[in-house]
Amino acid sequence: MMLEVRDLNAWYGRAHILFDVTLGVERGTVVALLGRNGAGKTTTFASLIGLVPSVTGAVTFDGEPIQGRPAHEIVRRGLGYVPEDRRIFTGLTVEENLMVGAQPPRPGVPHWTPEMLYELFPNLAELRKRQGGHMSGGEQQMLTIARTLMGNPSLVLLDEPSEGLAPRIVEQMAQALIEMKRQGLTLILSEQNLHFARLISDRATIIEGGRVRFAGTFADLDANPEISAQHLAV
């Protein structure tokens, strides 16, 4: 197991958000985290990356415990995070955004340079001097992913990467994610778009009300339509 999460509980203030979340991700696979708005997907990611102050449970990444560590330490171990809502630095240019994400190379994982990322996301190449605030939603989303890759992660958490994008852009996004997987990256993506998730992912985990309700392959999920019906309202 590359990432192992056991009995993760998280609170925002007094509100208990995650209840005993348990997950396992094998190296080189893609796991889709499915569930509705407010189900706990974003909190799960934020907890893994060290952005939620009150968390209990055990998280091991590459065999080392990372729970309770500050975010920057977790990221420097190779856990990349692509937040929802893009969150690029709108006052910075594309190049500068990439600079913020840059980390030293790490053995055994692809070492990304801006040039390689401009190849992966051809739209960005023409925009390197453009300010982040003057880009379209799709371009911003690609920049968010590129910026995280600059940290040379071995595992990337992607929070709703297809959300609010035109289908044409979603297609490009899918291609980029498949390419990342081909390069040997491990991915966890949270999604509401089942089709998108199915296209890219090897396994699915359904989270609802802060609890894991299902974990298995898409074939298992298809074999139990009542699960999707109950938790995903499909």
Partner: peptide, 17 residues
């Protein structure tokens, strides 16, 4: 269906990927 309800467009991506 093309711009919003989708699904068809995405399966097209599978072929091109």
């Amino acid at each position: 269906q093309q711009i919003y309800l989708g699904s068809g467009a995405l399966y097209g991506a599978e072929a091109s990927a």
